[in-house]
Design a protein around this nucleic acid. Sequence first.
RNA 1: GGUGGGUUGGCCGAGAGGCGAGGCAACGGACUGCAAAUCCGUGUACACGGGUUCAAAUCCCGUACCCACCUCCA
Length: 485
Amino acid sequence: MALRLYDTATREVRDFVPLHRGEAGIYVCGLTVQSEPHVGHVRSAVNFDVLRRWLEHQGYRVTFIRNVTDIDDKILAKSAEQGRPWFNLAYDMHRALTSALASINVLPPTYEPGATGHVPEMIEMIASLIERGHAYPAPDDSGDVYFDVRSWPSYGELTRQGLDDMEPAGDVDADQVARKRDPRDFALWKGWKPSEPATAAWPSPWGRGRPGWHIECSAMAGKYLGSAFDIHGGGVDLRFPHHENEQAQSRAAGHGFASYWLHNAWITTAGEKMSKSLGNSLAVPKVLERVRGVELRFYMASAHYRSHVEFSFEALEEAAAGFRRIEGFLDRALTGASDHAAGSDDVELVAGFAVAMDDDLATPAAVAAIYDAVREGNRLLADGDRAGAAALARSVAASLAVLGLDAAQFPGAAGAGGDGDALSAAVDVLVRGVLEERTAARAEKDFARADALRDRLQAAGIEIDDTPQGPQWSLSTPTRIDGGP
RNA sequence: GGUGGGUUGGCCGAGAGGCGAGGCAACGGACUGCAAAUCCGUGUACACGGGUUCAAAUCCCGUACCCACCUCCA
């Protein structure tokens, strides 16, 4: 059974055949760092992180490049509004993004290139496009350079659109119309304007200016992954114009570019894409006040990456409840078990998990397979088969780890070391004392007292579980132990 | 106008011709002093109208509604 992926370019699920055996090169369009990332923004990162982890689990050596766009029209406009330098806004938002991604356990990419660090590479590529007759500097003194879409016959192939059916670019001013050979020509290089900060311009053969949006990805993918690479990913909205343009300019420059195009669907609210106005309450740190990072990630990973997700806190909390059932099983089955390690390579994944993942990353089916194993494991536990349950639990843990859902890996996870361990140990001593009293009360059939003791613990957020081996306690909502405010 | 996607039970969310994915919630049962947790059980779900077929949520035709993209977008 081999991995099959849905390729947007061919609109079909195809066997994944890497360019180089055992290796995979992936380029994912990251974010323009212009505002606080919300849950919609990070979906793409989670989806492609799952792809990467699955490939790595299958033994691929993955080179994973995810860029950040750190200079563009929006960044300039917003920073001007906020009265601060554009580079400060971009840097701040970049840090917010990094922290948001870390909070949901997205692995850092192999490298995270930014546009401003790759101006020479872009200039080189633009020059080559001009040389090959696929780009031209504007005839006026604007300093702009455009890609000549009419010079590239297969323009539109990625999104199956005919040039003549497209609406002409809507954002252009009258001047731009005059300097373009075709209204659909897009900017490779934007000449500096006096209204823009001098720091937002770089020297080039066509005068000072800054790169157009699309060229950065072509240049950086080429630099870090080579002329041809395996997978290019991003959100559905990027198919056109961004990805279409990237492919056109890269291929026009003589590169093979991506073999497979993968696009993740949106997370929407109220049936519509998340707008800035709604975005605030859905900023990742805000959402993480309601659920843990691992639960947010579980919510996102439980849906197929190509399906629209209608975000709601109700659905998010339902997913969290489901995840806690899985965790509960893991806790019970692995308590006292020798090998607690999750994700070790020699542990078998849960039955059906690999088949699901190979089928275009069918995470919903993979999660269903995990639930099946949990139910079976709980049954074994009830039958007293601790060894069997522990074995299943290890498979469950290994499968979760492939999805990036190993709770211990998340920042601030209890038991991740540091103060958390000492605090847990202290609480454990106190709770055990209360439980001993309660056990004594129960032995004397003083149930009123026993229940009062249980109520007191519950009020403190501690759940009691009476098992044949005696009472066990756990936090009713697994919380982060991070010192608090 | 062009392109792509969607509509599934109380809710979330898979599936893509043939035994009711899975989860959350609810209800019944087992277990329990009572709970909690867990397990077992309970649902005649596929927008609408036609058609193809022994068999359609799934394929075909048509209709309605929703969403995305068409040079700022995850």
